[in-house]
Design a protein around this nucleic acid. Structure first.
Lengths: 159, 159
DNA sequence: TAGAATAAGTCAAAGATGGTCAAATTACAT
DNA sequence: ATGTAATTTGACCATCTTTGACTTATTCTA
């Protein structure tokens, strides 16, 4: 006897089908399955994780939504995810980030402009805060950037 | 699906088209969308902000009006420097940064990818630090990015 | 010119979503 | 049978939208 979480997971998966992403309404889904709305979050947090190849976005308030997107299994995403999961740990120095960016440039995953933007955003000067957490914040921020690069890959192309 | 505010936003935008400004009547618009007149103000306050490149003028009473105009900037460096010097202060919320980025996109100073990179880098999640200096850090980092954009301006454009 | 009519502005409450966290419960493996 | 992990639930929080009562400004008209 399958538990509700599994049903919800299958439902979302089948709704998504072959598409790259799906929009759901947390409350409607919860009502449909007669469960607490927070159970939807539970399913999302345990099943639609980054490790399993999903990223999520959401908005609250009237006509809010939760959007679940699949991460494509491209070579570049392979590399990005190994960076996020293994290579970059809890801390990341500016120097090391620069080296990683150089590698990403040579693999055509980012361009020079983007590299410079990222460096400006996460420079020692920008992250003016106690030393102890600087590298931690940079690690987290940089991983978030890489995640974003991974989904940008799947979607429509823009200017 | 789409909420009324978004419809109103789109309506105003399309009415404006390529023109520099548009005049609307708050009450007529509200009636057209069957909403409270103050909802028009809500849309104006949240979507047609200065940061997004709009200014508003209005007059009450008989034959009153609301005029929405696009801000013109003679060149991008001028706009960037006014942002760095005047507009952005010591603190910058994520939301406000997003609005500024929208404006930079519409002026072709950054593209959507770059916007998303910057948002990922300086999101609430990225800047998850134990202190309440988040908005300060974001302000500083964002200014550094803008500074970098001013320099990059000379170079060739790439995807 | 005073007062009525006509607009727009402000602000706070209510409504509509989604998020977090931890306690309670259930399932599972040893 | 017992301890650990997974699931379910609910109370409380955060954010965005919608509505309405009350205010202020401008014009029109008697």
């Amino acid at each position: 006897m399958a538990n509700i979480s599994e049903s919800i997971e299958r439902f979302i998966l089948s709704t998504m089908g072959d598409n790259d992403s799906v929009d759901i309404s947390r409350n409607s889904l919860a009502e449909y399955f007669s469960c607490a709305p927070s159970q939807i979050n539970y399913v999302l947090d345990t099943r639609f994780t980054f490790d399993r190849g999903f990223v999520k976005e959401s908005r609250r308030g009237g006509s809010g939504f939760i959007k679940i997107s699949k991460i494509k299994h491209s070579d570049s995403n392979q590399m990005l995810s190994s960076l996020v999961i293994d290579s970059i740990g809890e801390e990341l120095s500016f120097k090391r980030m620069t080296q990683i960016l150089d590698k990403l440039i040579s693999d055509f995953i980012v361009n020079k402009n983007e590299k410079e933007i990222i460096e400006a955003a996460l420079s020692e000067d920008s992250l003016s805060m106690p030393f102890t957490i600087k590298d931690k914040v940079r690690a987290k921020a940089f991983k978030n950037i890489l995640l974003k690069l991974m989904i940008n890959d799947t979607g429509e192309k823009d200017v």
